[in-house]
Each structure stands twice: as structure tokens, then as C-alpha cells.
């Protein structure tokens, strides 16, 4: 474990806590893409298949359980909680996210570290996570105004993978045989997808104005 990876995990956890706060405090999920949340649930289930077979550390197991449980709870809330589901922007959240699932799985069948079920599902979860934010960014473009908690949620979600990139650079420099090309290239693509959001987020923060994404 290094400081970059710890910062990344804590930022990722923070993004989930901010989203849970928004949904719990406002009893609303307006501005949140359910499709992106469903993709994240698939990402965590597919990535943590080793939850019961490989014990790394208490921290590792604890965080995996938190990520799986929170992503499933958020999807459940957005689908079945009477108050929350009413505020879902169904007509704005129209990205065909199943294409992302199919494409990521197809890519994982071609590009993986080992041709085993666990490795293919791991690569699939890495590719899917890189594009999982797309329905959310599309929804933001359509809904125009972004409430503070949603903006902070997306900011922390984007920042966490940027910390992971620093982690991979650090590990590459300090650990002789460390290579995680699939995760690293995918992580760079994932972070790049947030580039314009980060730009408008920074502008709104600098001008102390409401975050607006150009339609």
C-alpha cells in the first residue's frame, strides 16, 4: 500500500458517501444516472469475485464489501424506494449502457492477463469502469444545472482514479516486476473522460458560480 493508493481509495469511498448523503438527505436522486450506478454495481461484483477465495487484508476485504454493498443499495434505492424513485430523471437517462457492458466483455475476451474466468471478469470490470461514467456525464449535459452534492460526487469519482495513476507510476518505479498495463491504460482513459467535467468544475469553483455544463 502507498499513499497514492490510500488517497485514491479514500477519495473513492468519499464519493460514495457523498452520493449516499445526497440520496438520504434529499430523498432525491435527480441528476443521478441510474444506469451509471447499475454499471458500477456490475463492475464491483465482476471485479471482486475473489472476495471469498483470496484474502489480502482486512482493509481489502472490508472495502470490497463496502463497495459492493453500497453500489447495490444505491441501485435498489433508485429502483424501489418510493420517494427516491419518483425523482429519477428517466427521460434524461437514456444512454444505451448495455452496449458498454457488451463491448467491455468482448474486449476482455480478447485483452486479458490470463484466459481464466476470474481474470476475464477482472479485465471486464476494468474496461467497464472506464466507461461507466458516460451515462452520468450525458445526463448532466442534458439536465444543465448540477446540484452541489452531485458535482462533488462526480469530482471525487474522477479524482480517485487519478490518484491510482500516481500509484501505478510509484509502483512501477519502486517494484521491479510491477506492470498493470490493462488497469493503467484503462485508468488513463477513465480519467480523461472527466477532463471537460473537471474543467467546468474548476471554472465554477474559481468564479464561485453554479456548475453548468454547456448543452
Amino acid at each position: 500500500m502507498n499513499i497514492f493508493r490510500l488517497a485514491g481509495d479514500m477519495t473513492h469511498l468519499l464519493s460514495i458517501l457523498v452520493l449516499l448523503l445526497k440520496i438520504y438527505a434529499t430523498k432525491s436522486c435527480s441528476g443521478i444516472s441510474r444506469k451509471t450506478q447499475e454499471l458500477y454495481a456490475i463492475v464491483f461484483v465482476a471485479r471482486y469475485l475473489d472476495l471469498f477465495t483470496d484474502f489480502i487484508s482486512v482493509y481489502n476485504t472490508f472495502m470490497k464489501v463496502v463497495f459492493i454493498a453500497s453500489s447495490l443499495a444505491i441501485v435498489w434505492c433508485m429502483r424501489f424506494h418510493p420517494m427516491v424513485r419518483r425523482s429519477y430523471d428517466r427521460e434524461l437517462d437514456t444512454f444505451r449502457h448495455y452496449f458498454l457492458v457488451g463491448a467491455s466483455f468482448a474486449l476482455a475476451l480478447i485483452l486479458h492477463e490470463k484466459f481464466t474466468v476470474q481474470e476475464i471478469f477482472w479485465a471486464f470490470s476494468i474496461y467497464l469502469e472506464a466507461v461507466a461514467i458516460l451515462p452520468q456525464l450525458v445526463l448532466l449535459q442534458r439536465s444543465g444545472n448540477v446540484d452541489n452534492l452531485t458535482g462533488q460526487y462526480i469530482f471525487f469519482l474522477g479524482a480517485y482514479r487519478a490518484f491510482y495513476i500516481l500509484n501505478w507510476i510509484y509502483r512501477y518505479l519502486t517494484e521491479p516486476h510491477f506492470t498493470r498495463w490493462i488497469a493503467c491504460v484503462s485508468g488513463v482513459v477513465q480519467t480523461a473522460l472527466y477532463a471537460d467535467f473537471f474543467y467546468y468544475y474548476f471554472i465554477s469553483w474559481k468564479n464561485n458560480s453554479k456548475l453548468k455544463l454547456p448543452a
Binding site: R5, D50, D54, F67
Partner: peptide, 10 residues
């Protein structure tokens, strides 16, 4: 499983 197969990152 070999050591390097185990994914120690989240």
C-alpha cells in the same frame, strides 16, 4: 495461484 496473479488493488 501465483503471487503476482493475486490482485491486491481495489
Amino acid at each position: 495461484k501465483e503471487a503476482d496473479d493475486v490482485k491486491d488493488e481495489l
